[in-house]
Design a protein around this nucleic acid. Structure first.
Length: 400
RNA sequence: AGUGGGGUACCGAAGCGGUCAAACGGGGCAGACUGUAACUCUGCUGGCUCAGCCUUCGAAGGUUCGAAUCCUUCCCCCACUACCA
């Protein structure tokens, strides 16, 4: 692929890039030497749930791979002990070797839905960090000043507000930067929140006599609520390992405005394509619902499997537009004896306590065979094929 | 080590002797509405054998007819000062 063309492709959708000239130079050198660049990407080991927010970065990595470069995917099993210094909890318990291995397998399975395994090098940073002696840590620390670290927004704010910053958190960017040295990264990719850490990698590489890596950041996309960044802890994410049904439903609940972002960053639709759709919606030619369905369907097709999107769309229409029953639902085995409605709801796992079940019933959220039942004292005589529904989304078919 | 501030339900945060299962906000759940699991509106949001009872406000004791609220001891967090290096 021609350099110009590559550059155009590779720089799409980025936020920061240090710098385009450097990247160009690196591409040229790599081309003349007949090798690919090493693209570093770090991942947190404790949350092996890849979601659409990660996909933004993974898409970019894939583009690098398609242009002939190698992705070095680092699982931060060692840094995981420190905890991400994003202001929340400081240290976490170290993961056991076994746990790391399990997580890594789960990572691979998910990540390779986007990345090309042939061009991916998976590394654990405990490989080199676990070997370090305290002496080495001191030497490493000597390269960076407190003032440099305080330049990081998050740190300086917390310092100014008298909020604690653990020393170990200071070490985090340093360690991440050291990873770049160890894998000899040519380019490092990350979310915009990683900018500081990525740039520190450049500094450290220089100190260690390497060519500094290019740094590219990609946006953090908002989660389902449309406000906060997509993240597991906020539970506003769409995981790429979820069922078609869940994925589809979640995407359909995204606001009309946010869906364009998902088209762009998750599905890599070009600004032109998106502009066309937007215009269609604006003129009334296209129904926003149809556009969103296209989004949901495409995402499901991509991560669950070709054709799954259409199925999920059908199912969704059945349940929410036509108010019919889903094709598959939980089977609840009971005996033929009478059972209290409250017990039934709890037994199906739709309420975690009798109190909650009682509330659901009183609020009209419980239906038997599509008939609302608000009587908390009701006794039900189970019948084969009887349908229990709680809320909009929970269904169970009773059997024996 | 000293001084000061603080530990309340999923989270943030009020309450500072009874009317406290504990205001308010966020989150979650349900209902109505909807193209939508969006928005908005309404309600609910400790447990139970549910018009009653039981367990909760860092922990343990105590004062009191009665404690989240007062006292004692202890544990933990934070800031500042000192000390050590």
């Amino acid at each position: 692929m021609k350099i110009e063309k590559q550059l155009e492709l590779l720089t799409a959708r980025h936020v920061d890039l240090f710098s385009e000239d450097e990247l160009k130079k690196k591409l040229e050198i790599a081309a003349t030497e007949g090798r690919g660049l090493r693209i570093k990407y770090g991942a947190d080991p404790s949350a092996p749930d890849i979601h659409l927010g990660h996909v933004v970065g993974l898409n970019k990595l894939r583009e690098f791979q398609d242009a002939g470069h190698t992705v070095v995917f680092i699982i931060g099993d060692f840094t995981g002990m420190i905890g991400d210094p994003s202001g929340k909890s400081a240290t976490r318990p170290a993961l056991s070797k076994e746990q790391v291995r399990v997580n890594a397998e789960s990572y691979k399975k998910q990540v390779f839905k986007v990345l090309d395994p042939e061009k991916t090098e998976i590394r654990f940073n405990s490989e080199w960090l676990g070997e370090m002696k305290f002496e080495d840590v001191i030497r490493l620390s000597s390269h960076v000043t407190v003032a440099q670290l305080l330049a990081r927004d998050d740190f300086s704010k917390r310092y100014a507000d008298n909020r604690p910053i653990s020393l170990v958190e200071f070490l985090y960017p340093l360690v991440q930067a050291y990873d770049s040295v160890m894998v000899e990264a040519d380019v490092e990719l990350g979310g915009t929140d990683q900018l500081f850490n990525l740039l520190l990698g450049r500094e450290l590489q220089k100190i260690y006599g390497q060519h500094p890596q290019c740094v590219m950041t990609l946006p953090l996309i908002e989660g389902l609520d449309g406000v906060q960044k997509m993240s597991k802890s906020l539970n506003n994410y769409v995981g790429i390992d979820e069922t078609a049904k869940e994925m589809f439903g979640k995407l359909m609940s995204v606001s009309d405005e946010l869906m364009w972002k998902y088209f762009h960053y998750v599905l890599c639709r070009t600004p032109d394509e998106i502009e066309t759709m937007r215009a269609g919606v604006a003129s009334g030619e296209l129904h926003p619902r149809a556009v969103k369905e296209d989004l949901a369907r495409s995402v499901v097709d991509r991560f669950v499997g070709e054709g799954e999107g259409a199925k999920a769309a059908e199912e969704f229409a059945r349940i929410f537009a036509q108010k019919k029953l889903p094709q598959e639902m939980l089977e609840l085995a009971l005996s033929a004896e009478k059972i209290g409605l409250i017990d039934l709801v709890v037994k199906a796992g739709f309420a975690s306590s009798n109190g909650e079940a009682r509330r659901l019933i009183q609020q009209g959220g419980v239906r038997i065979d599509d008939e609302q039942n608000k009587d908390i004292k009701a006794e039900i005589t189970p019948a084969e094929g009887m349908i229990l529904r709680v809320g909009k989304r929970k269904f169970a078919r009773i059997g024996f």
